[in-house]
Design a protein around this nucleic acid. Structure first.
Length: 912
RNA sequence: GCAGGGGUAUCCGAGCCUGGUCAAAGGAGCGGGACUUAAGAUCCCGUGUCGUAGGACUACGAGGGUUCAAAUCCCUCCCCCUGCACCA
């Protein structure tokens, strides 16, 4: 039922083009990052678009000319990888995609046909783009679909090409070597998604220094993460069981493990195997350390892993527990080796490794506790250690200050080379080994460029962030960001204009595309050919650099000028340290100041039943089923009202159900009033409900204007429903139906940004011909707060009475209420201004105690009605009904001697 | 490790910026009542402890401090979450 209402209005909005703005009036341009079209979206994606849509709708009702566009992202490796996987008949992928297709298709045969088509990556992108659009339409998003495009289109390629030419001219593109995770068998770089357990157990790249120890006619390479301890090396460890190679690199020979040789082939490339040895070959021979030319022995150790770094380990027994224990196991090589202390730490007198090993009772070199000890010593020495006197130019320096300098020094002096290793042993999903390879001639975006950073910082300072605390975080990310590779060998995307064989990487091609929205529809409409979109054309459209012959692009230029910049970009936290920051960098680089982004809203993440959504947990909720299963309006209300935008939102079935009940309640209240006429004769409670509505509406408007939609919904939806409940309790259902008619239009308008379908439906049922979606948001004035205060006052009295009843256990027959005297009120007013003067005014002890109470209870701060007696009179029958007994107000009788205790705002009560 | 954000009653979750009106919004759950043949739905009341009169006491991760006054401000500690790169 609700779905058909929703469908009806979605269709009607579309047919009437009400979300397709022309360029007229004050504009508001809002965007949400486009989704990656490799499968159906889930409700997490829906959160950002729902927020975007609610804001778009609200801004429209505020009188702005709103543009809310979207497009589809198809560039990158995933879609290609899926197509390949399907082509290769991978069952897992095929089953997954069949399950996706089941969301949209009901014919088995058709599904198989579509899967067959998915061998072509473009078909995947197109299919899901279409379905995502369909899904978005079912949620009622007010998107201007004329602006739709996808990133595989030639138009878009031309645009990105222009962007990269600009960046190149400005010197923001750089070329160099870069280490990446890589699979030898697949011959490809591998990302987190390609690595087994890569999402849960991250693999990072570790930079070792391989120190060159002269051995025979070459060098033994011993990898280390602690090059600063080179001064304390006493020996080298070799695994006697493992296989080692002698390899040639340029004019030098290196000795490394077999595994290390495989890695070097992809890191320094110019290497070839010359000879091979068992590890035991090296045992008890000598090598020469590079600094002072000391001869040091090569000794066997079982802990040496040939598949970690170079397969040789330099031994620093003073600072490395492993080395210390391994040496102790062989009695310090008959006592010929003494640990050399090179780092001093306050509070440790002896040899740190020895102290730690003995204190922890380590038995031998296979003790698992060694790992932790090593870390502990490392941290201590790194942060608190200073280099000893025997460390040349580094003596006396703090370790953390000179560690990087020592690295550089070793490499510059030719004492060692860099060697990259993965942070843990890793294999691809298909089980192939992952190593670190160095890509030669990789192009980067130079985010370390200080001038570029500065521009971006300035941009951040000029922007609004929601929540505001994120401004600082953006500054931090900008400072922290370094060079980022921006091209890849593989994947869909725009060809890199400065070198063949490279594709612009998919996060780097999606940074300023919000500008493209403003013009794409006209480019199509005017049938402009992609090849016409050269540098000069884009320079004119986006930066106003006119050159002859570009007249025909004037209107397109105007379009851009009118809409740009983006007033608000809404997305999730996940985009903060990448997309959002790139978005800022690239805008700061390319566009004029007046066209730089104005605001960013960062949404918290969405979880399902208390847990992060994931396929393995089976708690992924696809957007495709939402409208049918719950209704778009329920979904939208849940998204907006169940959590503040910047916190985690938990999609919980029980909560959804409870919200659904609330929404049903709302529907029945509205429907009850639709056919009724306005009420003209308003009583006390009618005045109350109308005024409390105005208060709610005013607050809701202010909240919405600050994008606090949850708070707005609490006011205008939840709290007001409670107000209605209260009204009904006092005045009855029939009168409620009538009075609600008086505020109905405004109420619907207030809710229209969040639950547009229901509001549109009721709006029309009320006889309106136009669309509520583009009505003006109601403004409120002339609120009578005193009537609201008076109702609160009555409820406070009731609460006091109930409290007394509860404590005393009395079943009331009669309740006496006495309001305060004029005199007491006067004393209160004096006390408000000057407490001591109030005491001076007091005539007797009773008055002094009154004043004390007034002050201690801060009664003068309460919103206290003037005419207490009159107010109680208006509500006395209600109170009697509630309490089920007779109430006597300011009676001449005073059986409890309570009259004298009546305070302003706090009448005294006696119950019998 | 670096950066950011948190720890609030049975649970979820507001409040904290701008100290008092906070025993702390709103849900959920639970208890009692009304309605009903009954269940459900709905509505009302209650839900820290104590209390035969509207009160007192204890409470907002732990511990200190500032203040007439602290969930709110400052310091220290403990714990949790998120991101950390070539991946969209």
């Amino acid at each position: 039922m609700s779905e058909s209402i929703e469908k009806k209005w979605q269709k009607s909005w579309k047919e009437n083009h009400i979300f397709e703005p022309s360029i007229d009036g004050k504009k508001f341009f809002i965007t949400v990052p486009y989704p990656y079209a490799n499968g159906p979206l889930h409700i997490g994606h829906g959160r950002a678009y729902t927020y975007g849509d609610v804001i778009a709708r609200f801004k429209r009702m505020q009188g702005y000319n709103v543009l809310f566009p979207m497009a589809f992202h198809v560039t990158g490796t995933p879609i290609l990888a899926i197509a390949d996987s399907i082509k290769n008949g991978n069952k897992e992928t095929i089953d997954l995609y069949k399950s996706y297709l089941n969301l949209y298709e009901d014919n088995e045969e058709r599904i198989n046909g579509i899967i067959e088509g998915f061998k072509d990556p473009e078909r995947i992108a197109l299919y899901f783009s279409e379905k995502i659009q369909r899904d978005f339409e079912t949620i009622g998003y007010s998107i201007d679909w004329r602006k739709k495009f996808h990133t595989g289109e030639t138009y878009y390629n031309k645009f990105v090409e222009w962007q990269y030419k600009k960046l190149y001219e400005m010197g923001y593109l750089k070329k160099g070597d870069y280490p990446i995770t890589f699979s030898i068998v697949d011959g490809n770089p591998v990302g987190e998604d390609d690595i087994k357990d890569g999402d849960t157990d991250k693999v990072s790249i570790i930079e070792y220094i391989a120190i060159k120890f002269k051995f025979q006619d070459g060098y033994i390479l011993a990898g280390t993460l602690r090059p600063e301890t080179i001064f304390g090396v006493t020996n080298i460890w070799v695994n006697p069981e493992a296989l080692y190679f002698k390899v040639r690199s340029g004019s030098e020979f290196y000795f490394v493990s077999k595994e290390a040789f495989e890695k070097l082939k992809y890191q320094i490339y110019d290497v070839e195997k010359v000879e091979e040895y068992r590890g035991e070959f090296f045992v008890n021979k000598f090598a020469m350390e590079p600094l002072n030319g000391r001869e040091i022995p090569i000794l066997p150790a079982r802990f040496v892993d040939p598949d970690n770094a170079t397969g040789f380990v330099k031994s620093v027994p003073a600072h490395a527990p492993y080395d210390y224990v391994a040496l102790r196991d062989i009695n310090f090589w008959e006592g010929k080796i003494n640990p050399i202390l090179v780092i001093n730490i306050k509070g440790i007198d002896g040899i740190p490794a020895k102290e730690f090993v003995e204190r922890n009772g380590i038995k031998d070199q296979m003790d698992p506790a060694l790992e932790k000890l090593s870390e502990e010593i490392y941290r201590l020495e790194y942060y608190h250690g200073t280099m000893g006197e025997n460390c040349g130019e580094f003596s006396g320096k703090l370790v953390q200050d000179i560690k990087d300098r020592i690295k550089e020094w070793i490499i510059n002096k030719g004492y060692g080379i860099k060697f990259y290793e993965t942070s843990r042993k890793a294999v691809t999903r298909s089980g192939n080994k992952v190593i670190v390879a160095v890509v030669k001639g990789q192009w980067f975006l130079d985010y370390s460029n200080q001038e570029w950073k500065k521009k971006t910082h300035e941009l951040i300072d000029s922007m609004e962030f929601y929540p505001p605390s994120f401004a600082q975080q953006f500054h931090d990310v900008v400072d922290w960001l370094r060079e980022r590779p921006c091209v890849r060998k593989r994947g869909l995307g725009t060809k890199f204009p400065f070198e063949d064989g490279w594709i612009i990487e998919s996060l780097s091609d999606s940074t300023i595309y919000t500008a493209f929205y403003t013009i794409i529809d006209k480019i199509r409409e005017y049938n402009i050919k992609p090849e016409e979109l050269d540098e000069a054309v884009f320079d004119y459209i986006f930066n106003g650099k006119y050159s002859p012959g570009l007249e025909k692009f004037k209107e397109i230029r105007n379009l851009f000028e009118y809409w740009y910049p983006v007033d608000l970009r809404v997305s999730s936290l996940a985009h903060l340290s990448n997309h959002f920051t790139f978005y800022l960098f690239h805008h700061a680089a390319i566009f004029e100041k007046k066209h730089l982004p104005r605001g960013i809203m960062v949404l918290g993440m969405l979880i399902s039943e208390g847990a992060k959504m994931s396929k393995s947990k089976g708690n992924v909720i696809p957007l495709a089923t939402i409208a049918e299963k719950y209704s778009a309006d329920l979904f939208r209300l849940y998204i907006v009202a169940n959590a503040d935008f910047d916190t985690v939102l938990d999609w919980r079935e029980v909560e959804v159900k409870s919200l659904e009940k609330k929404l049903e309640k709302f529907k029945s209240i509205v429907e009850d009033s639709i056919g009724l006429p306005f009420m003209n004769e308003l009583n006390y409670m009618d005045q109350y409900i109308i005024n409390i509505f105005k208060v709610r509406l005013k607050k809701a408007y202010e909240y919405m204007d600050n994008y606090k939609f949850r708070d707005a919904m609490v006011e205008i939806f939840f709290n007001f429903l409670n107000d209605i409940k209260y009204y009904e309790k006092r005045e009855g259902e029939e009168r409620r139906k009538k009075i609600i008619r008086n505020i109905l239009e405004d109420w619907l308008k207030a809710l229209a940004p969040v639950i547009p379908h229901l509001c549109e439906e009721y709006w029309h049922r009320l006889g309106h011909q136009n669309f509520i979606s583009i009505e003006k948001y109601p403004v409120t004035e002339d609120i009578d707060y005193s009537i609201i205060d008076s109702v609160n006052y009555i409820e406070e009295i009731l609460e006091d009475i109930r409290n007394i009843l509860k404590v005393s256990g009395i079943v009331p027959k009669r309740i006496y209420i006495y309001t305060s005297s004029e005199r007491a009120r006067k004393l209160m007013m004096i006390a408000k201004e000057d407490k001591s003067r109030a005491f001076k005014e007091a005539k007797d002890k009773t008055e002094i105690s009154l004043i004390k109470q007034i002050i201690s209870q801060r009664l003068f701060e309460k919103k206290c009605p003037e005419n207490e007696e009159e107010i109680i009179k208006k509500s006395i029958s209600y109170m009697e009904r509630e309490l089920n007994c007779e109430i006597l107000l300011n009676s001449n009788e005073d059986p409890g001697k309570k009259r004298a205790y009546a305070l302003p705002c706090k009448p005294s009560i006696f119950i019998t």
